[in-house]
């Protein structure tokens, strides 16, 4: 059984026009967003789940305004993490439901661009949910939105880190049975730094701290984002090959 196995792919894309970079990434993200809105299955369910969750958390932690205010940043990010785990499967769920994953993998060139396209799609979904969530937490948990540009920046950095990992694991588990259970199990321990840093930055901004005071948390988020986007995009082609 000690046979060697190798695959050599020589100039496989030789006859193709050289258009492999960014356009394909954007087309893939745009296509998936269009499909997601037409199918309507995932996004609406996630937003309603969040609304219910916020109500329950509000009942459990309230009704004192000071208690709710103190809990708001944690509630925001834990809810986003939960909603994210619901949505994480969507990046490849679309392909698996329609059976189109093979066709996507057959597109010429190396596979990193698929990761970036799916990552962008996941990021857009998460940002949409995060915006809804910001408004809801502001209403139900009195999270002050005064420093909204800085809050949005925090949300942006946090969702990048989350999407980087969730996209990778969604691709890795795409063809497995039981992926709905495995995905959160693998995802949550890894995103602890994202949730912690984002909660602290949000809490700082909610208390009205100057931006310089939360910049350390942004830096941690940036490091996390850079490391995981790089490593995940490098490992991704391996995760998808048959």
């Amino acid at each position: 059984m000690n046979r060697t196995s190798q695959v050599s792919v020589t100039s496989r894309s030789g006859a193709q026009p050289a258009l492999f970079g960014l356009p394909r990434v954007f087309w893939l993200a745009w296509r998936d967003l269009t499909l997601e809105f037409r199918g309507r299955a995932g996004l609406l369910a996630a937003v309603f789940f969040l609304a219910t969750m916020l109500l329950i958390l509000g009942l459990a932690l309230g009704p004192l305004r000071s208690d709710l205010e103190k809990a708001a940043p944690g509630v925001l990010w834990v809810s986003l993490a939960f909603a994210g785990s619901l949505l994480a499967g969507r990046a490849f769920g679309l392909e698996v439901e329609d059976g189109t994953l093979d066709d996507l993998l057959l597109t010429p060139g190396s596979k990193e661009w698929i990761y970036f396209g799916k990552f962008l799609f996941q990021l857009m979904l998460l940002l949409l949910v995060a915006l809804a969530l910001l408004v809801m937490t502001a209403g139900l948990f009195y999270l002050p939105l005064k420093a909204w540009p800085a809050l949005l920046f925090t949300v942006f950095l946090g969702t990048i880190g989350y999407a980087a990992i969730s996209t990778f694991y969604a691709g890795l588990l795409a063809r497995l049975r039981g992926r709905e259970v495995l995905l959160p199990l693998l995802l949550f321990p890894l995103v602890v730094p994202v949730v912690l840093a984002a909660v602290r930055a949000t809490a700082g901004l909610a208390q009205g701290l100057p931006v310089a005071e939360v910049a350390d948390w942004w830096r941690l988020l940036l490091v996390f984002d850079a490391v995981y986007v790089t490593v995940c995009s490098l490992l991704f082609p391996l995760a998808l090959e048959g």
């Binding site: 912690l196 941690l220 995760a239």
Partner: peptide, 23 residues
């Protein structure tokens, strides 16, 4: 393949986790 990926991502997470929890 899948577990190798998890093994690598998990180990990278150690220093970042530690920093975040420490701060």
């Amino acid at each position: 393949k899948a577990s190798a990926a998890v093994g690598i991502l998990g180990a990278i997470n150690v220093p970042i986790s530690y920093m975040s929890v420490k701060w």
